[in-house]
Amino acid sequence: MIRNVHERTVAAPAERVGALLDRLGGPDDVVWPVPEWPPLVLDRALAVGAQGGHGIIRYRVALHDPGRLVGFAFDPASGLVGVHSFTVEPSGAGRTRVRHVMQARPVGAMRLLWPLAGRWLHDALTESFLDRVEYAVGLRPRPTERWSPWLRVLRRVSGNSTARRGDRTRMAP
């Protein structure tokens, strides 16, 4: 079983950050890290039942509490059985905790692909997402680690090698 958690506290009110979360997958989405990663595309506006995904990973919106929570259920054909979610919650005066939690069981080829490649790609994508949240509220993200040689190889093999980590001009919304 995979349990993968990423979180960051952002110096902005929860209402402001939550409004950004509600734009996920839409034409005005400024927090999904494109062009660094495959775009998150949904078949309709963000709402329970909308289907889509990013790259080869497919899912449907299973939960949506506007401004607070977006939960996705993986399509098992993607090799994952489970869910992932983004939450926004106040964390003191003018501060917000943004959290991404993935809980899934890898099946089929993903049992091998997750530890070899999926985990590394997922972790980097999620950190890029959190960077974009900070950019979208006018902050400069904390310095992050450079992508490892292994991650750069994985990105090249998966066709996601056009942007380089640290090239912040490409990440700005």
Results as ranks from 00 to 15, higher is better:
Pro39Lys: 07
Ser148Gly: 00
Glu15Thr: 14
Gly166Asn: 08
Gly52Trp: 03
Val31Asp: 03
Val10Pro: 00
Asp167Tyr: 06
Arg132Pro: 02
Thr9Asn: 08
Gly26Glu: 01
Pro143Tyr: 06
Val153Leu: 15
Pro143Arg: 15
Leu69Trp: 02
Arg168Val: 13
Glu89Met: 10
Asp43Gly: 09
Ala73Cys: 14
Leu63Asp: 15
Trp150Asp: 04
Leu139Asp: 11
Ala62Gly: 07
Ala11Ser: 15
Glu145Leu: 13
Ser78Phe: 09
Trp114Asn: 01
Pro90Gly: 00
Gly55Trp: 08
Val88Pro: 00
Thr162Trp: 08
Leu130Met: 11
Leu154Tyr: 07
Ala117Ile: 06
Val137Asp: 03
Ala104Arg: 01
Pro33Trp: 00
Ala73Met: 12
Arg170Gly: 14
Pro66Leu: 02
Ala62Tyr: 07
Gly71Phe: 05
Leu80Val: 09
Ala124Gly: 13
Ala104Leu: 02
Gly49Asp: 11
Arg16Gly: 05
Ala109Met: 09
Pro27His: 04
Trp37Arg: 00
Leu46Glu: 02
Val133Leu: 10
Phe129Gly: 04
Ala11Cys: 10
Trp37His: 03
Gly25Asn: 00
Gly118Ser: 11
Thr87Arg: 15
Arg44Lys: 12
Leu151Pro: 02
Ile2Asn: 01
Ala77Val: 14
Asp29Ala: 11
Asp75Ile: 02
Gly52Ile: 00
Val98His: 03
Gly92Thr: 11
Leu42Arg: 01
Gly49Tyr: 08
Val48Cys: 08
Thr162Ser: 13
Ala19Asn: 01
Pro173Ile: 12
Ser128Arg: 06
Trp120Glu: 12
